[in-house]
Design a protein around this nucleic acid. Structure first.
Lengths: 344, 344
DNA sequence: TTTAGCACTCTTTCGATACGAGTGCTAAAT
DNA sequence: ATTTAGCACTCGTATCGAAAGAGTGCTAAA
């Protein structure tokens, strides 16, 4: 178990290192105002903390830097709960002020503001539309061969996709079809749309239309929307300001990962848990070994639908970022729940 | 004026430097099989070429590297016209094979393939939709206060935007309105849509509808689509592989610019000209001083609608890239003209 | 006109040295 | 029993000089 003094010293060392990015030595520590121990005492404690695995040295006679275990302990037990400046709160609230731009733009703004406020890289996974319900379906013929399928949800989101028309289908038939589709499928959640498409409409179509099957099949294909939200990344280049990324090789690792959407999805899959902090190698991703990731999912009602995250160096301002991410994710949950949770 | 021998030497030096990224010395040059001059002769010529401004030294006794003027001359007069491998041609043709994914995906693919084929960064400005004509307009009410405006073009492209409904407007009235809009505006190019919206429909609406003005105004606002195409960038991190970008500061300059869409738009504004090559400071953009940009616009008929570009170090494989960009831009012009130029 | 030869320049590398920051340990002080 | 002062030791960094290597420019010979 750690003594109070060890906790205190551990905390100061990590705080200092987060600010300076330089290994912390006993002399400098002792000079601080709020430290009343001699360098030698601090050295002893440091040695103990190192033996317990909370600190590391970069070489035999260097100052100490936090180990991953150190950061972990710091995050779990030593974090001073921060608070947000008035201006930051206003900035966040204003994102969702006007719905006019649509959800997509708002989410985009979240990413931008997060990265500007933290000067780290932000990742925002937009809300998935599974729960959104079909408001209106449309098929607009473009030319003899192609048509565009449009799905409007009750949240005002619009999905559209081109598909091939079978030859020789009458415009009137398409119209009939659209009517049946709307009649039967309005109010169905997007996630169930594909399944219900045949079940609900096939019989009826058969009765009134020839050649419906080909169209229905194409439409069904078009209706497989993305089951997951869109990704936005803000401040991709912020990592370049971090002194530990002066080395282009390290930058490349992280940047390459940020270009690969599938990797990012893995990192920010929405969950019910609150704030999650992954430090260095706690992340599965190899490229993240020098980074930390702080994520929080936001929900509509009880259902987590998306995630916001901050990606920065292991030497991250955990306190500040956690406060910010926590506040913002709750704000988003509130706004989205109010907007979209008309069902439950 | 340059002698043949000077041309020859200039060409070999630049070719060599493009491959090796190392200053080229007279001894190494003379060792090459196809060079039959002595080092001393080469040194003399080099001195002349330097005096004329085609070559530079990094320090008093270093080998030579091309100056911007040297690259310029190389691009304008010395370039061996390359040819594309069969496999590359196939790769390019296959992008537009199936229309099913829609234009957006295809353009996205162009960016990806360009960066993979060159290992530089690719920029693709998607076609603007100005000339595309309105196929269908829709207003779908979402709830009491909001509706979504949908514009489908004759090319299958779908624009949509939320807007506020004025209070107390009847569903039947909206339907009437949509009918009038479609009746009057079908076939109008997107670029003229906003202008014609009032002129064509106001009188008619006045006769049949109350309260039309507020809706029309909101709809008009929603109808201001982007007048310019979408940007896609591929291989953003490729610049990190270039030895001259071992320095994080340089990387930051370029990366920051790539994050700023407005800057990129400036670089790739579509023009009628063929291939354009901008070397180093020939680019207005400060951040581009160590980069070269090769752009080519593609057209529908005679109207340039978009641009593809390659951004790499000044020490770029000009020959290869120019061939590739030329081929691809023509291919795109062909495909797009066939698809969309139903008008002229 | 070309080229061999040579002195000279500049970068890079290597070792040696000195300096500074920091540690660990021992022994004295509290 | 703690804490701390003192000191030897380690290691990284900076500086210097020397040597090697690549390359140039110039002169004079071919």
């Amino acid at each position: 178990m750690l003594t109070d003094r060890q906790l205190f010293i551990l905390q100061i060392i990590i705080d200092d290192f987060i600010r300076s990015a330089q290994p912390v030595g006993s002399n400098n520590l002792a000079k601080k105002e709020d430290v009343s121990y001699s360098p030698a005492t601090i050295r002893n404690e440091m040695a103990d903390l190192e033996e317990m695995g909370f600190l590391e040295k970069t070489h035999t006679s260097s100052g100490r830097i936090p180990s991953e275990k150190g950061y972990r302990y710091y995050v779990d037990h030593l974090l001073a709960p921060g608070s947000l400046a008035r201006s930051e709160q206003t900035a966040i609230h204003s994102i969702f002020r006007d719905r006019q731009n649509g959800l997509e733009k708002a989410v985009q703004n979240v990413a931008t503001i997060l990265s500007e406020l933290t000067s780290y890289t932000s990742i925002v996974l937009g809300p998935k539309f599974n729960d959104h319900k079909v408001k209106k379906l449309q098929i607009i013929p473009i030319d003899r061969e192609t048509a565009v399928a449009i799905i409007v949800t009750d949240t005002g989101h619009v999905e559209n996709r081109l598909f091939s028309l079978p030859e020789r289908i009458a415009a009137a038939d398409i119209e009939k079809m659209v009517n049946i589709l709307n009649d039967r499928l309005a109010g169905v959640p997007l996630s169930e749309l594909h399944g219900k498409l045949y079940k609900e409409t096939a019989k009826l179509m058969k009765r009134h239309l020839q050649n419906y099957e080909a169209v229905l099949q194409m439409f069904a294909e078009a209706a497989v929307g993305p089951s997951t939200g869109k990704l936005f990344i803000g401040g991709k280049t912020n990592i370049l300001n971090q002194p530990e990324f002066r080395d282009v090789e390290k930058v490349r690792l992280v940047m390459n990962m940020m270009e690969k959407e599938s990797d990012i999805y893995e990192l920010v899959r929405p969950t019910k848990a609150g704030i999650r902090v992954k430090i260095g190698t706690e992340n599965a991703e190899q490229a993240m070994e020098d980074c930390s990731l702080i994520t929080a999912s936001y929900s509509v009602g009880d259902e987590p639908v998306g995630t916001i995250a901050i990606l920065g160096p292991k030497r991250m301002e955990y306190s500040r970022v956690i406060t910010l991410v926590d506040f913002l994710s709750h704000d988003m949950t509130n706004v989205l729940t109010r907007l979209y949770n008309t069902s439950s």
